[in-house]
């Protein structure tokens, strides 16, 4: 995920150069995070209250984002939806990346049969399409929030593992690892102190990317009616329940879609425009 960097304007500060796009993207992400945390204090109406006489009401004063198919306040529902979409995705991606990265580094450093077995098994897991996996698991055990988080995490562990392992394998061939090894260092030291600091940047970028995938998958599942169940509603579920408003171009169906796009595009742009450490050769 790299865009030509030359095109974006960059500013430098404290030995790092920042792109304007990256800063804006980071602010958007920060804003959504705050919304997710503070949603209960921000919503003007309770999410269950029917406040409009009409359904699919337009945007107007008091109902800034219009009303949904039952006449409920969309603004409140979208703000609360952020909680579920961001919260569930963040929990899932944290579990997925933590397990995947730790396993990947262990496999790379240890090698041998452990590496072979782990890689073979997780590669097999990877050859189950993610939506399908979600579909089957949800069919089997229902879709409570913990189940959703775990399912999403399990789906993305193989990818995180593969990514981290590939990076760690590269680092593992470096001489400084060999030096540490013949010094007699333990596997834990090798992983935590020698390998991790060298792969942390790409791993964080991968974290962001996987967060986007999970947001999209969660929204997709909810859109199919297999994600969060009513009365809870994340952004995908909001689109689903208001899809009837599509012919009228109701804000109730447009706004949650835009919210998803706004979040995922921001994350993608942030990853592509991370601050760069300035390494100038001396003139």
């Amino acid at each position: 995920m790299t865009i030509a960097h030359a095109t974006t304007s960059r500013r430098s500060f404290l030995g790092h150069s920042y792109s304007v796009v990256g800063v804006v993207a980071a602010l958007v992400i920060l804003a959504w995070t705050l919304v997710a945390i503070l949603a209960p204090y921000l919503i003007p109406h309770s999410i269950g209250d029917i406040v409009d006489d009409d359904y699919f009401g337009p945007m107007r004063q008091g109902l800034w984002l219009g009303s949904d198919y039952l006449g409920r306040d969309m603004l409140s529902r979208v703000l609360m939806g952020a909680r579920y979409t961001v919260g569930i995705s963040l929990a899932a991606v944290s579990i997925a990346c933590f397990s995947g990265v730790v396993l990947g580094m262990i496999a790379a450093v240890t090698g041998g049969w452990l590496d072979t077995c782990l890689s073979r098994f997780l590669d097999a897991m990877n050859s189950i399409p993610s939506k399908l996996f979600g579909l089957v698991v949800v069919a089997a055990v229902g879709s409570s929030i913990p189940v959703l988080i775990l399912t999403l995490a399990v789906i993305y562990i193989p990818g995180a593992y593969r990514f981290a392992r590939a990076l760690a394998v590269n680092i593992n061939t470096m001489d400084f690892i060999t030096v540490a090894r013949v010094r007699g260092e333990s596997t834990a030291y090798l992983i935590g102190s020698e390998i991790l600091p060298n792969i942390i940047r790409p791993v964080l970028a991968d974290f962001g990317l996987r967060f986007v995938f999970i947001v999209l998958l969660l929204s997709g599942l909810s859109f199919l009616g297999l994600g969060l169940q009513p009365p809870l509603a994340d952004w995908g579920a909001l689109v689903r329940e208001n899809i009837g408003g599509l012919p009228f171009v109701a804000p109730a169906v447009i706004v949650p879609s835009l919210a998803i796009a706004c979040l995922t595009i921001s994350v993608n742009l942030l990853i592509d425009n991370l601050p760069q450490k300035i390494r100038d050769r001396d003139a």
């Binding site: 001489d175 007699g184 060298n198």
Partner: peptide
């Protein structure tokens, strides 16, 4: 195998590699 040697044996024999670029951890 180095793994089976004692700490003192490992300490008393050090190896220095050709490429300092890869022999030094760039993150430290």
């Amino acid at each position: 195998a180095a793994r089976k040697r004692s700490h003192d044996q490992l300490r008393e024999m050090q190896i220095v590699f050709q490429y300092a670029d890869t022999a030094l951890n760039p993150a430290k």
